[in-house]
C-alpha cells in the first residue's frame, strides 16, 4: 500500500484517496512541434525500476495535483512536492541521493 502526503493538506493519503497522473515533469509539445518531439511527449515514458517521479491528484480531498518521488521497487517514498515546479526541488533530490547514491532519471540526478 502506498501512502503519500499531500503537500497542500499535509495529510497522509492512502493510494485509494488519490488519482495517479502518470509521469512527472513532461514538456508539452503541441501544434507546430516536430513529429519526433510530439511523439516523445505523447507516447514515450520512463518505466524505471527504482527512482521515479510521478504526478498524483488528491482526488478524495483538496483536489489538487502534486508531485511525488518514490522508488518503484521498494515503494519507499522520498517525498512529495508542489505541482508548480518544472523539476524536482533540491531537498527532494538530496533525500533520494541519501538513499540511492548516483541515481539518474531522465536529465535529473
Amino acid at each position: 500500500m502506498l501512502i503519500l502526503k499531500c503537500p497542500y493538506c499535509g495529510v497522509a493519503c492512502d493510494e485509494t484517496e488519490l488519482d495517479a497522473g502518470g509521469e512527472a515533469h513532461l514538456t508539452r509539445h503541441g501544434p507546430g512541434s516536430s513529429d519526433n518531439a510530439f511523439e516523445e511527449y505523447m507516447f514515450m515514458r520512463e518505466n524505471p525500476r527504482g527512482v521515479h517521479f510521478e504526478r498524483w491528484r488528491h482526488a478524495y480531498g483538496c483536489g489538487k495535483w502534486f508531485h511525488a518521488a518514490r522508488n518503484t521497487s521498494t515503494l519507499e517514498v522520498f517525498g512529495t512536492y508542489s505541482a508548480q515546479v518544472i523539476e524536482p526541488p533540491k531537498d527532494i533530490r538530496e533525500a533520494i541521493s541519501a538513499k540511492v547514491p548516483g541515481w539518474r532519471w531522465r536529465d535529473f540526478a
Binding site: C9, V11, T16, Y60, G61, C62
Partner: peptide
C-alpha cells in the same frame, strides 16, 4: 475510510476529507 483516525492524528475539531467506501 483509509484515513488514520487515531486521536493523535485526527483530534477533535480537525477536518479530514476522505473516502467512505466508494464516495468522497
Amino acid at each position: 475510510s483509509p484515513a488514520d483516525l487515531r486521536a493523535s492524528v485526527l483530534p477533535v475539531g480537525e477536518v479530514r476529507r476522505t473516502r467512505l467506501a466508494q464516495v468522497p
